[in-house]
C-alpha cells in the first residue's frame, strides 16, 4: 500500500515540476521582457487589495474558506498580463499570510499565483484590452477556460507542495483542494470574470485621437 502511494506521489511530483517549467518557459517567450513602472505599481496595489479583501472570508471547511480576494487574480491578470497576475497572487497571498497568520503556507501561495498567471494569458490575444474596452463574446469563454486551467495547474503544484514539503496525506489534500477549487471557481465565475466584462464595457471603445506619425 505504501509503495502504491509513493509511486503515484512521485509521478505527480514530476508532472508538477514539468508543468511549472513549461509554464515559465511559455511566459518568458510570449511575455514582455521586464516590468514597466506601471506593472510594478499594479503588482503592489493588487497585492495590497488582495490583503485588504482577505478580511472578507466565509469558512466552508476545515482551513478552507470562500474568499472574495480570489476574484482579483483573473481581474489583474486580464488587465496587466500574466506576469503581473502571477506576482499579485504570489505577493498578495504570501504577505497576507505572513501579516495576518504569522506563517506562510507556500504550496497554496502557488495556487493563487497560477490563478493570476493563467488569468493573464488572455492578454496575448491582440484584440483584447480591458482598459480600452476591447472585448468580444469569444473572449468570455476563453477567460473561463483559462481560469479553470490555472486552477488545475495551481492545484497540482499545491498538492505536490503539501504532500512532499509539508508531509500531508494525499487523500486529505485532495479533499481540501476540491473544496478550495469549488469555492474559488464560484467566486471567479460569479464575480471575477463578470467584473472584467463590466469594466471593459464601461471604458470607451473608440476615441477620436490618432497617433501622429
Amino acid at each position: 500500500m505504501k509503495g502504491f502511494f509513493t509511486s503515484i506521489a512521485t509521478w505527480q511530483g514530476i508532472l508538477s515540476i514539468v508543468i511549472v517549467v513549461l509554464a515559465s518557459l511559455f511566459l518568458f517567450r510570449k511575455g514582455k521582457k521586464g516590468l514597466s513602472t506601471r506593472d510594478v505599481v499594479a503588482i503592489g496595489i493588487g497585492a495590497a487589495l488582495y490583503g485588504a479583501l482577505s478580511y472578507i472570508s466565509i469558512p466552508i471547511g476545515p482551513n478552507t474558506s470562500f474568499r472574495i480576494a480570489v476574484a482579483l487574480l483573473p481581474i489583474f491578470g486580464a488587465i496587466f498580463g500574466p506576469i503581473v497576475g502571477f506576482l499579485v497572487g504570489f505577493i498578495g497571498h504570501a504577505l497576507n499570510d505572513a501579516l495576518m497568520n504569522g506563517s506562510v503556507w507556500w504550496s497554496w501561495v502557488f495556487l493563487s499565483a497560477f490563478m493570476g498567471m493563467f488569468g493573464g494569458i488572455i492578454t496575448f490575444d491582440k484584440d483584447f484590452d480591458v482598459l480600452s474596452g476591447m472585448i468580444q463574446k469569444k473572449h468570455y469563454f476563453k477567460m473561463y477556460m483559462y481560469a479553470i486551467i490555472g486552477m488545475l495547474v495551481g492545484s497540482v503544484v499545491a498538492y505536490a507542495g503539501d504532500v512532499f514539503l509539508y508531509g500531508e496525506p494525499a487523500a486529505k489534500v485532495w479533499l481540501q483542494i476540491i473544496l478550495a477549487n469549488a469555492a474559488n471557481l464560484v467566486v471567479i465565475a460569479i464575480v471575477g470574470i463578470p467584473v472584467i466584462i463590466l469594466l471593459a464595457k464601461t471604458k470607451s471603445k473608440n476615441n477620436n485621437l490618432d497617433v501622429d506619425a
Binding site: 503588482i43 503592489g44 496595489i45 495590497a48 505577493i91 504577505l95
Partner: peptide, 16 residues
Amino acid sequence: KVAYSISIALRYIPDV
C-alpha cells in the same frame, strides 16, 4: 522592481 512592488504593497495595505 519586484522588491519595490512588495514595498508598495506594504505601504498601500492600510490605504486600500
